[in-house]
Design a protein around this nucleic acid. Structure first.
Length: 510
DNA sequence: CTAGGGTTAG
């Protein structure tokens, strides 16, 4: 290596460390004769880190010779870009290039298949990794462990873990996470107890694991035992409460966090807004909004969508639509949220208009999009429009109607008074009707006081789930109108036991 | 010059 090359690389390294990608590029461009493979790799890495994968790829293609770091860096870029197709293609090209893949290579390539259909390749990667002797790497190991967790293979999960001699904390944490995701809470707890050293991530993984397995009490007990809690630990606990419908506990914990915990972040606010939305706590939601502004938290797309959902579910449609309109970038979830808002408030036309706008913006709808649009049509009595959407969802958008979509159509026909059409749709649908479907028909029967259809639907519902509240409510309406009360003596009791707590009032955010 | 762990919206 000439002196000039080492100077060039030093200058580039300094610029990159300061985040000055363009400065590094100027040094690189001005010294074509002194560049070596490391100079090229540094530039590729710089573009990968700033998510400019196209430029990284361009440099990779242009460079006169590539070493394994060049390949690994571009693989990392493609993985970060979630382009698993190209990642795998590049890995195949690497195989025929004659260069030997390293443990870096496998940790990247295995990570790229996680959560995709290519996850089935994990055992083959594993075999290859063992044959090349890379199975002792903690980086490769943690990627493989996540892969086997997704495949539901707990013994392979442990084998990979066991193969690694120098286990670090991340690897132990991956084992706990894997067991928790597979529902093996006892194994997870045992692993936690066996760990030589634990950090806040280990504790949080355990707490979150119990929450995901619906063991809320145990999660809270461990949460209280933690002596080092950070924003992630608090947020995990709050999110866990929301997920198990303990919204008031979630809000209470959030208040406690504001008083004596770490500063909440976007994740925290998104969760507590979800709690407000679920529990229709408009006042609390507004206070959260105010305190978020006070904390100077940046409202990103996720948080803005959480606000739209919260305001929509709490009935403040104006606020919901206002935030939605002002959002700079709207993604699928944002659109689904506003479509759900229209649906809840019976604004069928608005839903159809926004659905069209969403399609025109180039987004691909998913099954939730159609649930929201169809239920908006049902609420607004737009039978023909609903039929048209239902008909095209599979043909035009490749989304096959699921039970929920049929339930929307049953609701649509039912509300419009066309009980025959609703019934024949139930008969020809490719699923066994469930609670939701029968419930929709029952609702329509209640609306139109149809005793015959109604008792049939109620019977079906009763067979599927005893004491379903919807059945009681609607039967009371039908039977009540006909003066048939004797079978409903315990109705009032049931309703009282489901009584919701009243919303607290007053400000609690200082 | 390249790699891994826990928390967000429908």
């Amino acid at each position: 290596m000439s002196l000039q090359t080492s100077t060039l690389n030093h200058m580039m390294k300094t610029s990159l460390r300061e985040g000055q990608l363009n400065d590094a590029r100027v040094y690189f461009d001005n010294n074509p004769t002194y560049r070596d493979v490391v100079s090229w790799n540094m530039m590729i890495s710089g573009y990968v880190k700033s998510n400019q994968i196209h430029i990284a790829r361009q440099l990779f293609d242009e460079m006169p010779e590539r070493d394994i770091v060049s390949w690994n860096t571009l693989l990392l870029g493609l993985q970060k870009d979630k382009d698993q197709e190209s990642t795998y293609q590049l890995y195949l090209q690497l195989q025929s290039s004659g260069l030997r893949p390293t443990s870096y290579t496998f940790s990247i390539v295995v990570s790229s298949v996680l959560g995709t259909v290519f996850n089935v390749l994990v055992p083959q990667f594993h075999a290859k990794i063992v044959s090349l002797g890379h199975h002792t790497s903690v980086y490769v190991g943690s990627a493989l462990m996540r892969g086997y967790t997704d495949l539901g293979d707990h013994s392979a999960l442990y084998c990979v873990f066991d193969d690694i001699v120098n286990k670090d904390m991340s690897l132990w944490n991956a084992l706990i996470l894997g067991y928790m995701e597979l529902g093996l809470t006892d194994e997870a707890q045992k692993a936690f107890n066996r760990m030589p050293k634990k950090d806040v991530v280990s504790w949080t993984t355990l707490v979150d694991g119990y929450l995901k397995n619906n063991e809320v009490e145990r999660a809270r007990y461990i949460f209280d035992e933690m002596d080092e809690k950070n924003v992630v630990s608090w947020t995990a606990m709050i999110t866990g409460y929301v997920g198990t419908d303990k919204c008031l506990d979630a809000i209470e914990l959030f208040i406690q966090m504001m008083r004596l915990g770490p500063r909440p972040n976007q994740h925290t606010f998104a969760s507590v807004l979800a709690a407000c939305a679920k529990h229709s706590e408009l006042l609390t939601g507004q206070q959260v909004h105010a305190s978020l502004l006070k904390h100077g938290i940046n409202i990103d797309i996720v948080l803005a969508t959480a606000f739209v959902t919260m305001y929509a579910k709490c009935g403040d449609i104006e606020a919901a639509y206002c935030i939605f309109k002002e959002m700079p970038g709207k993604n699928l979830v944002s659109w689904n949220s506003i479509l759900g808002c229209h649906a809840r408030h019976g604004r069928g036309r608005a839903a159809l208009d926004d659905f069209e706008k969403m399609i025109n913006s180039g987004l691909q709808p998913n099954h939730i999009t159609f649930i929201n649009v169809l239920s908006a049509c049902a609420h607004a009595g737009l039978v023909e429009e609903g039929e048209r959407i239902f008909g095209c969802m599979g043909k035009t958008y490749g989304i096959q109607p699921e039970k929920e979509h049929y339930a929307c159509m049953v609701d649509l026909y039912g509300k419009a008074g066309n009980l025959d059409k609703a019934k024949s749709l139930i008969e020809c649908m490719p699923f066994e009707p469930d609670i939701v479907v029968w419930g929709a028909l029952l609702g329509a029967c209640g609306l139109h006081s149809d005793f015959e259809f109604g008792s049939n639907a109620a019977n079906e519902l009763h067979n599927l789930e005893k004491n379903h509240p919807a059945a009681y409510v609607l039967l009371s309406k039908i039977f009540g109108e006909r003066g048939v009360w004797n079978s409903l003596t315990d109705l009032k009791q049931i309703m009282e036991s489901k009584h919701m707590k009243k919303q607290k009032s007053g400000s609690w955010i200082g």
